[in-house]
Simulated assay, not measured.
Amino acid sequence: MTMKPTELVWHYTDGAAIMNILAKNELWAGSAAFMNDTNELLSGSIQLRKHFEDQRSALPEDVIVGLEQYIPEVRERSRHSFVLSASSDGDSLTLWRYYGRDQVSFAVGLDRNEPLVPLARLKEDTHPNPPADYDDDKYDRDEDGQIATHPEDGSPVVIFDPDSLFIEGGDWNPVVYDSAQQARIIAEIFENLRKGVEKRNSPSEPGRLRIWLFPYLMNESLDLIKNESFRDEREERITIWPNPDWKFVFHRPGPFGLVPYAKLTSLGGANHDVHEDRFATEPGRLPIREIRIGPTPYSAGAAASLKQLLQFHGLHDVKVSYSEIPFRQ
């Protein structure tokens, strides 16, 4: 993780959510497939497709076919991406208005240099209730459709174990609103994809297995691209991709059905494997350094009750502050 100067990112929320955050030491990262904004996490993919179309006439046909696999014409937000949003602005009128429509709202100041990891819902290492087709894509197959085996010992050739532990992302990153910076990101991703496809198509590439992870790791940069009209939010976000999903994905009711989400916590909690630092099995104290109370004519009472709640949870070192934006009735 690249260390940045000690600073806070601000997670805006309401009273019910902050009570849950303080009591359970967990933050909820929502599934990208269930975002309210129809273009959320899609802006980068839309731009990448347009860049691809602009370059198409200069590309060989076999490269075009390969790129179509990774740059689809119609892209859906990944159900495997989970997003936790915050802001670099701890006193944003835009965000106060969004979260403080009916009650006092809060901004939770988190130390961006303290890592957050997914909290496991199960401790097992293999799926406890796998469906019948769970292992269908696990093994490499020969031209006859039979599972390929290693010539040395006859063991099956595994392409991807669905139970393998694979966790990507987890750092705070600023959302990119600047169009010139977005264009540079898109051009770099496209060139990496093009070179990768050309390498895979090359007959000089030895061996039948050509594992190439870049297409699956490029999402973090793409997911940071957002329309510049949202610039005043100054959003910072964590995007995380945990595998296997049965181990890390929770569900809650929502307007679009049962919404998948991942719980993020700190590594200060218990873990059944003392050497594991990619996830936690019990929550640890979140790196909350300050909580700011949103604009309200009742700031004194709101502060008193918040300080009492912090004391009940032993969070005596968390600073309580107030929005400096004048309240208007």
Results as ranks from 00 to 15, higher is better:
Ala280Cys: 05
Thr38Val: 01
Arg101Asp: 06
Ser88Met: 10
Arg237Tyr: 03
Thr149Glu: 05
Phe230Gln: 09
Ile238Glu: 02
Glu68His: 12
Gly284Lys: 00
Pro60His: 12
Gly254Trp: 10
Leu306Trp: 05
Ile225Glu: 13
Asp163Gly: 04
His127Gly: 03
Arg141Asp: 01
Pro260Lys: 07
Leu165Gln: 09
Pro128Gln: 11
Pro295Met: 09
Ala32Lys: 03
Gly314His: 01
Asp37Leu: 08
Val249Ile: 09
Lys195Met: 13
Pro215Thr: 10
Ala33Cys: 02
His275Asp: 10
Trp246Thr: 06
Phe312Met: 09
Val158Ala: 13
Asn219Asp: 04
Pro260Glu: 01
Asp137Val: 08
Ile288Gln: 09
Leu22Gly: 11
Arg234Ser: 15
Pro131Ile: 10
Arg184Glu: 13
Pro115Val: 03
Gly90Val: 04
Ser88Glu: 09
Leu8His: 03
Leu193Pro: 03
Leu286Arg: 00
Leu209Glu: 10
Glu198Gly: 09
Val104Ile: 09
Leu27Lys: 05
Leu67Ile: 10
Gly145Pro: 03
Gln329Trp: 04
Gly90Asn: 05
Ile71Trp: 06
Gly109Met: 11
Gly170Asp: 09
Asp153Trp: 12
Glu40His: 01
Gly294Trp: 13
Arg97His: 12
Asn201Lys: 04
Ser229Pro: 00
Ile46Asn: 13
Thr2Leu: 11
Glu198Phe: 10
Phe190Lys: 05
Pro287Asp: 05
Ile325Thr: 15
Gly207Leu: 08
Asp133Ser: 12
Gly109Asn: 03
Leu193Ile: 01
Ala58His: 15
Gly100Gln: 08
Met35Thr: 07
Thr126Met: 09
Leu264His: 01
Leu42Glu: 01
Tyr216Ser: 12
Ala33Ile: 09
Met218Arg: 07
Leu67Lys: 02
Ser202Cys: 15
Pro203Ser: 11
Trp28Asp: 08
Tyr134Phe: 15
Tyr139Lys: 06
Met19Lys: 08
Ser179Thr: 14
Glu282Gly: 10
Thr265Gly: 03
Ile288Val: 15
Leu110Phe: 10
Leu315His: 12
Glu324Gln: 14
Phe52Ile: 08
Trp246Glu: 11
Val197Met: 10
Pro297Thr: 10
Gly314Leu: 02
Ser43Ile: 13
Glu68Gln: 14
Thr281Lys: 03
Lys50Phe: 06
Ser266Tyr: 01
Leu264Val: 02
Ala107Val: 06
Glu26Thr: 13
Gly169Lys: 02
Glu290Ile: 00
Ile189Gln: 12
Gly284Tyr: 04
Ile18Cys: 07
Lys319Arg: 13
Asn201Asp: 03
Ile291Tyr: 04
His272Val: 11
Tyr134Gly: 01
Arg77Thr: 05
Ser57Gly: 06
Leu165Lys: 13
Phe327Trp: 15
Asn219Arg: 13
Gly100Phe: 05
Val104Cys: 14
Glu282His: 11
Val65Ala: 14
Asp91Asn: 13
Ala262Glu: 04
Asp273His: 08
